[in-house]
Amino acid sequence: MKIAIKNPVRRRWGKREKYELQAYIMLMPQIIGFLLFSIYPMIWAITKSWYFYNGISSDTRFVGWENFIRLFSDGEYWQTLANTFLFAIMKIPIELPIALLLAVLLNQKLKGTGFFRTMFYLPHIVSTAIIALVFANIFNYFGVINALMQKIGILEQPVDWFGTKMKAMWVLVIADTWKSFGVNVLYFLAAMQNIPEDVYDACKIDGAGKFTVFFKVTLPLMAPVLQVILMLSIIGTLQTNELVLVLTNGAPGGSTYTVMSYIFQKYAPGLADVGVNVGYGCAMALVTGLILATITLSYQRYSQKLNDIY
């Protein structure tokens, strides 16, 4: 009778290696995709930032820091960056409180909460272009909003919602809030449901009212999640692109372009005018990326307190 002698150490390493190999194989498509479709284009775009590049090889030439120097005197670019911040300042203080309020309501043990949770999330899975087209029609001069407001006597004449910068910005804010509040409701709900029940039981025993419980217990215990939600909201808002391109395309007079939509519209090959200096657009994208990264890092650093509450 043969007795199989197994080396326990060797067997353990073999299994581990097998698991690791499996893990890498499963990760591979994602990693390859990330390298090919994110890292490679990023490196390509970064290198082109120091060139005059319009897609024609004989026209391409190294221009050193010229694109970057020119960028600092390009008022249109800085205007679109300022628009982006204005858009964020207008949208985030509306979007997050609405999402928080709805999350509090959905967190009650009431009938039909599942239905509303799904309904609120639905806009998030609808294509941004479709949402933009829907809102363009709703706020059309002959659209439903003007008709409704005229019917109930708020307006005498229809309003051209895209006739001035601020009106068009509000339409963008409403459309973008409608698209993204649902996902924040889910984040807030998840955060609330992680708070242990016994904390609320203790509050009840102490005789704390609903508002006191919300502001002194629920909100502080949600603070670490709030930090992440706020960060995602800031990043998402600063990157707003398709919505602007389809809904206003910068109208009126280019005044509603956010920085991403501006770069895309004016410098993306295929969309921009033939012969445009794509290298300058790459420099613009690089500087914008650095600005947004600085904002995100600063936010993470200065919002650290939200993590330290409890």
């Binding site: 005059f52 694109n67 020119r70 960028l71 005197s73 390009d74 249109e76 670019y77 007079g253 280019g254 005044s255 005018d273 200096n277 300058y280």
Partner: peptide, 13 residues
């Protein structure tokens, strides 16, 4: 590069 074209000057200004 980095300056407004005539179309932009008309529409925006």
């Amino acid at each position: 590069t980095g300056e407004k074209k005539d179309a932009d000057v008309f529409k925006e200004d």
